[in-house]
């Protein structure tokens, strides 16, 4: 059922996202043209055209990020809490599946948008001369990893792990943001009047609540942690410290995300109020 929900969700969102992403990439090509050939040409007209193309590119890029965000909110609200909710919430599908489906597709588009942005920047900056340089650099990097320098290998290994941790953290952060908004909408919509207002209020109440909880927990941890652990933490390597730090950040993102998920589910199961 989740796969089917996601298939239809992708259909519904793809119609908007795919054109935006394609436009961004096309504008990147235009931008590239502009950067390398138009902006510093002699002609005023070409200069101007160049500047327009660059503006178009940045507008498309910013626009795509904004659209991705707004779409995420709109889909949840429109499809589950408004008229379409009469169709969706009577499907033989659990509330869990609905929320998970929306979440996974939202995070998917966020990731695709980010990747497209990187690709677009690459296209913007791309010049044939660079290709040689890139391959040269790549060659040098690979030569470095010639498994005879243990320290470098170690470093490369940790760096790779770090990159993975960063990506996980970004995904988790996006999921957490989505779920926070879902929870606020689900809570706000349970009221008969002023649903929008209550949704905004719910967002701030939840955020504040979590903040208080987090601070409280941190203080307790510092006060209660036995000296052994504290000393131990001061004597570890930079690598270990980085990884532990990343792990902590990951946990501090995943735990509230789970909390918002639970809140969303509760409101949708027990306080659904389609009008």
């Amino acid at each position: 059922m989740l796969r089917k929900l996601m298939k239809h969700e992708l259909r519904a969102t793809g119609r908007v996202m795919v054109p935006m992403l394609l436009i961004t990439l096309i504008c990147a090509v235009g931008g590239n043209l502009s950067v390398y050939h138009l902006v510093e040409s002699g002609s005023v007209v070409l200069n101007f055209l160049g500047i327009m193309l660059l503006t178009a590119f940045f507008a498309a890029l910013a626009g795509t990020f904004i659209v991705s965000f707004v779409l995420m909110i709109r889909r949840f609200y429109q499809n589950l809490l408004r008229d379409e909710g009469y169709l969706m919430m009577t499907l033989p599908v659990t509330v869990n599946t609905h929320v998970l489906g929306k979440l996974l597709v939202s995070v998917f588009w966020a990731a695709v948008t980010a990747i497209t942005a990187l690709l677009a920047m690459f296209i913007l900056m791309f010049e044939l001369e660079y290709v040689d340089l890139i391959f040269y650099d790549l060659g040098e990097m690979l030569a470095l990893l010639q498994f005879d320098d243990l320290y470098l290998m170690d470093y490369a290994g940790h760096a790779a792990l770090f990159v993975i941790e960063v990506m996980l953290l970004l995904v988790a952060a996006d999921a957490c943001l989505c779920l926070q908004l879902y929870a606020a909408m689900a809570a706000g919509h349970s009221f008969t009047h002023h649903k929008g207002l209550f949704s905004v209020a719910a967002y701030f109440v939840f955020a504040a609540g979590w903040s208080i909880l987090k601070n409280g927990a941190q203080r307790v941890f510092y006060l209660a942690a036995p000296d052994g652990i504290r000393l131990g933490l001061q004597n570890i390597s930079a690598f270990a410290a980085t990884h532990i730090n990343m792990l902590a950040m990951l946990l501090l993102t995943v735990i509230p995300a789970a909390l918002w998920y639970a809140v969303t589910i509760w409101f949708l199961k027990h306080r659904l109020n389609l009008d």
Partner: peptide, 24 residues
Amino acid sequence: RETHALVSYLPERAVLPLWMTAAQ
């Protein structure tokens, strides 16, 4: 969920997503 599979519901209002075709 089990009863949803057994019940066919025609709401009073229009609930089909506007972007869908009849075939979809």
